[in-house]
């Protein structure tokens, strides 16, 4: 997977300065163009993080409302899509935090039992993701796919790095159970900020958000 694949997610798509300026001024046509350009990328991120189509659709709306309300804060130090991604990720995390009173986020045993008759070797990643607890799944996606560091994920959650690390460890453990694979070796374990990750400047902006 290389930069092209990242572009396929849509966040790396460039946004012309003229459209950005017009959107800042409240131009509805420019706002529509931005929405249509990034809606799939934002929706995919949200859907992977919250794993509920209806909730993801609502968060998609809220994320763009947030983004347009704060668009003057975008300083252009990174591609606009990465800034928008940070807005959406924060929205999703806020939602997940709000659900913590009502959801059992860290109950891997119960979740594993949900698919007892499933041949885990045939369980594809998509289905494995669907049975991960919400917060570990969100952290897994932000870390492995979006390239955020533990420090950045912790900042978005208002928590410490150890929180992010523990959530990721839970996600790894659960995936290993579901997919029937062994412990990844330190040498070959996937790391964030692969070539598909945004440039450091984008990370900095994401952290500032």
């Amino acid at each position: 997977m290389d930069k092209d694949s990242k572009a396929a997610t849509g966040f790396a798509q460039p946004l012309e300065a003229e459209w950005l300026d017009r959107a800042r001024a409240g131009d509805r046509a420019a706002q529509a163009l931005i929405y249509r350009r990034y809606e799939r990328a934002v929706y995919t991120l949200l859907r992977r993080m919250v794993d509920c189509a209806d909730t993801a659709a609502d968060l998609l709306q809220d994320s763009f409302l947030d983004a347009y309300a704060r668009i003057h804060q975008f300083r252009g130090e990174s591609p606009f899509g990465y800034w928008l991604r940070a807005v959406a990720a924060s929205r999703a995390l806020m939602h997940l935090r709000g659900q913590r009173r009502f959801l059992e986020l860290f109950a891997p045993e119960a979740e594993v039992e949900r698919v007892p008759s499933f041949d885990v070797h045939q369980l594809d990643l998509e289905r494995a993701l669907a049975v991960l607890p919400p917060l570990p799944r969100a952290v897994l996606w932000l870390y492995h796919v979006e390239g955020y560091t533990h420090a950045e994920i912790a900042a978005m959650n208002g928590k410490t790095e150890s929180f992010s690390k523990s959530q990721l460890a839970r996600a790894h453990q659960k995936l290993r159970e579901l997919l029937g694979v062994g412990e990844p070796s330190p040498a070959t374990r996937a790391t964030p900020h692969t070539p598909a990750s945004p440039p450091p400047a984008a990370m900095a902006v994401a952290t500032e958000y």
């Binding site: 995919t44 992977r48 996937a190």
Partner: peptide
Amino acid sequence: SRSLRELPELSP
């Protein structure tokens, strides 16, 4: 990481 990134985009 690679496998997760290869998952398809979803349509809103």
